[in-house]
Every structure is written in C-alpha cells, then in structure tokens.
Write a protein that binds this DNA or RNA. Structure first.
Lengths: 157, 157
DNA sequence: TATTGTTATACTCTATAACTATA
DNA sequence: TATAGTTATAGAGTATAACAATA
C-alpha cells in the first residue's frame, strides 16, 4: 500500500486518516464550491439550486406530482410547498386535479416555465464546464459514475 | 461521442442535459447521503460533522487559531464562535493567549479532546468504508483525487 | 489600515409533528 | 390504514454588518 493513496483499514488499531483524506470532507467541499457557482449562475433565472431542481423535474416530467418530486429529490413534502407556491405565482407551472384521485395535483410546466428551465440549464452547464475544466472527458464521466454509485441503491444496466 | 457518456457542449444551441446528468446534482446527493451517515456515526461523540471537522483541525494542528481554521475550512469567523465556545465548555480544548500578538488565541486540544477526535474519526472511517463498499481501492483514490481537483486551487506535486 | 475575535441577525435547506381530505 | 398536500416550527449551516481590541 503506497503512502500516496491513503487507505482506511477497517481492522487497524489506530485511525491514521486526516481530515483531508476523508471522502465526506472532499464531497462536502466540492459540493459547496459547486453550489456557490450554481447559485450565481441561476441568479438571472431567479431560482436557487434546490428550487431550480424542482422546476427541472416538472419540465422533464410533465404531469408529475409534488409527492413524486419529493421522492425523486429526497425531500420532505413539507419543504416543497412554499417553493411550488412561488413558482405557481410566477406562472412557471400549472396545477391540474387528477381525474381518478382527488388527492393528487398534476403539475404541468408553462412555456414561461420551460423557458426558465432552458435558460437556467444553459447557465448551469456553462458553470459546470468551468468547474470541470481541469478534468478531461473520461474523467468527467468517471466522476459522475462514481458519485452516482455512492448514493444510488441500484445501478441500472 | 457516445450516448452513454453525456457531454454538455458549450457551443450547442440546445442544452440537452437532464438533472441527473449534472455534476452538481450528483455531488449534492452524494454529499447529503454521506452527511446523514456521518451525523449518525458521530452521535456518540456528541458532535455534528462541521463542529467535528473543527475539533479535528485543532487536534491535527495544535496551536492553530480560530482565524486559521476558518480559512482552511472555508468558514466565516462569525460562525465558529459558538462551536468553539461549546467545545471549550466541554473541556475538549484550551485557549492560550499568543505572546507576541495579543489578538490571537492559540488553541490546544486536551486529552479529552484528542480522545473524542480519535473515537469520532474511527467511527467516520467505519461509516466511509460502508459508503465506499461498492468501490475498489483505485476507484476510491480516483474519486478523492477528482473531488479535490474540483475545488482546490492548486494540486501539490 | 488590516486582522482577530465577537455579537446580532437573516436566509437556505432540512426535519418533525400535526392536521385535512381523499383513497 | 395509508397517501397527498398543507401548516407551523425548529435546527444546522452559511452570510453580512458592525464592533472593540490589537497590530
């Protein structure tokens, strides 16, 4: 085992890892760094990162529901209410009562909502290209793959 | 360019990426997933992830200062005050006035603080070994390397 | 002037509990 | 019972402004 690639032994008597060797620390620093750029990139769209991911969910899945978005994004349903209320007031999507289940409101993007999603996505991509400028194509794909494997229960074939 | 490895063209007229293809989204989901496990792992030490990273900084760098920790961890100095106050009250570190600069308080871990850091670190490593169980050794090193390159200005040789 | 450490305050995101209406 | 959507509230983390003491 080389000293350049620190490994945290499960059976080791002493934990020799330092803060900077922890994957959780690197994940958090990288995520916060990205968030700062993403927040700035989305300013013209008047949407913060989490609300924007909700808008994207509606645009990518017209007819989705509040509960479904929460399951997909790992949010509590209590926390999506005010975000949806603001987007609805700004005319970015419409609610349509489900015919066969009165509890459900299906969400459909307006043209204005689709335009906002498109513009925000373009700016996010521009931001990410800067963020990833020091990684080549295969490294970017590898990073995306490794990250997804961390938190996603199963990997689709 | 294969369809399996989505690439976000800077010059493309339309942004074709979906939410799940964004590196920022994967970073955030992975980081939140890790944070949940780390928070649970640190419960016996009675420290949340961010406060624990501060305790680790003191233990790894005895004699460091509040301002230096903030620069290293990317925190605002206003936000470290109450965290340090609690750790000090719990007897995890001591403050010692710097001889040549009266503004500075140098921070030194107590044995209790070192023990807490050691126990927390062991639990964090146990947690991370579970988190990374689907990645082999070279994949773990590669992930750590790629993450560090995202947010760190320079890479040491 | 600049830095250290501090107080006060506000915002974002996340969490739990409790409620209604529908299934 | 269980789910969808909502309200109220609290906690953690981050942000800015302002200040006193010191360099």
């Amino acid at each position: 085992m080389s000293r350049e690639t620190p490994h945290n032994d499960e059976e080791g008597e002493y934990a020799t890892a330092r803060l900077a060797d922890l994957i959780g620390y690197q994940l958090r620093r990288a995520s916060i760094f990205d968030l700062q750029g993403a927040t700035a990139a989305l300013e013209p769209v008047q949407a913060r990162p989490v609300p924007f991911s909700i808008l994207l969910s509606i645009v990518e899945n017209p007819g989705t529901t509040s509960a479904e978005i929460c399951r997909t994004l790992g949010m509590k349903s209590a926390n999506i209410v005010s975000i949806l209320a603001e987007f609805e007031e700004r005319g970015l999507f419409l609610r349509d009562a489900d015919a066969s289940d009165q509890r459900i409101q299906r969400l459909f993007p307006t043209r204005k909502g689709e335009a906002a999603a498109r513009e925000g996505l373009a700016r996010i991509i521009e931001h990410e290209n800067k963020l990833l400028s020091r990684l080549n194509g295969s490294e970017r794909a590898e990073l995306l793959r490794l990250l997804a494997r961390l938190w996603q229960p199963d990997e689709p074939s």
